[in-house]
Design a protein around this nucleic acid. Sequence first.
DNA 1: GCCTCACATGTCAATACTGACATGTCGCTA
DNA 2: TAGCGACATGTCAGTATTGACATGTGAGGC
Lengths: 176, 176
Amino acid sequence: MSLPHALLGLLAVGPNTGYELAKYFEGDLGRYAWQAGHTSVYPELNRMAGSGLIEVTALGPRGAKTYSVTDAGRTELRRWMMAPPADAKVRNEHVLRMFLISALPREDALSLLDRMAESTDESAAELRKVRAEHPDGAPMHGAEGFGQLAAEFGVRQYEAVRDWARWAADRLRAEG
Amino acid sequence: MSLPHALLGLLAVGPNTGYELAKYFEGDLGRYAWQAGHTSVYPELNRMAGSGLIEVTALGPRGAKTYSVTDAGRTELRRWMMAPPADAKVRNEHVLRMFLISALPREDALSLLDRMAESTDESAAELRKVRAEHPDGAPMHGAEGFGQLAAEFGVRQYEAVRDWARWAADRLRAEG
DNA sequence: GCCTCACATGTCAATACTGACATGTCGCTA
DNA sequence: TAGCGACATGTCAGTATTGACATGTGAGGC
């Protein structure tokens, strides 16, 4: 169960409403790290508030509830971050498809690898542009840090996949 | 639902028993791409056999059932591989922890980044050794292909994370 | 021959997650 | 001032997944 820890992490940077928290999961956080819909987020927030990890610290318009992390929550977040469980959960459909390339007929495998290389190259370029908007000396800590770490990670991730796909395609072609 | 596609992919390379299929998920496949226990695998195999994607083609000792992919299964696998759904599911506890680094106090963040850089460097070195055991000209297709693609992907993945962690630690220290 | 371990498959209750549905509010613009 | 779209939270049924439990077999060592 990483969802509560994801929420704890987001709240550790600053108070947020459930709505805003749910939105994070539609961005880079959900794309690279952990996806969740608002239908998981709201019940989880209520559970966490019940167990004292977070608390409602403000009420806004439209019934908005602003949550903040409690001391207990901060302790739990730190514990989880510093001592990762050995059996970390990993599920990634993109990576799965990469692993299964060998199961395809040669021609399909090659065309898929080429497409992967191309699309990850484009994604990397796009992200690099986004990243460029942030000043190079921007603080790495707190709210802005998220975006910068994520963007940099994303760029490197895409580039690694692109290079891997090119390598695999070359190898496969060399066998031809 | 990617589990059936993962199984389809494994079976597309060659017939396997449920037990052997379940074991794949304890290795690199489960570590990087898609994790699943035998308690998901067996019922899923029965479901897939029911819907005609796979079939039992041999019975072995100890009640072992060897499954093979059917034409329908191969078609479905190809469809899924070549036309990825836009909303690919991604869940990765390791990546989540990277994203949340900014939420930690500076000292914790630095020590965690350092540890991440170190452990991914070690993992990369280990995998590189495993990869070296395979002859460089080994076929990229079929059963052996899995291992090679996976190993190469793993190495690049670990190195990318290591480099990212070093970059992040440097940036954070520079802010000092 | 016995013992142990890996092989091999399964059920079932509890938990987690998704997608469809439901409800209402505030701010802006035409 | 009416209407629209984003804001904001939620339930619930159906599905997926996990962890605990259950059961039995074949091979190899002693």
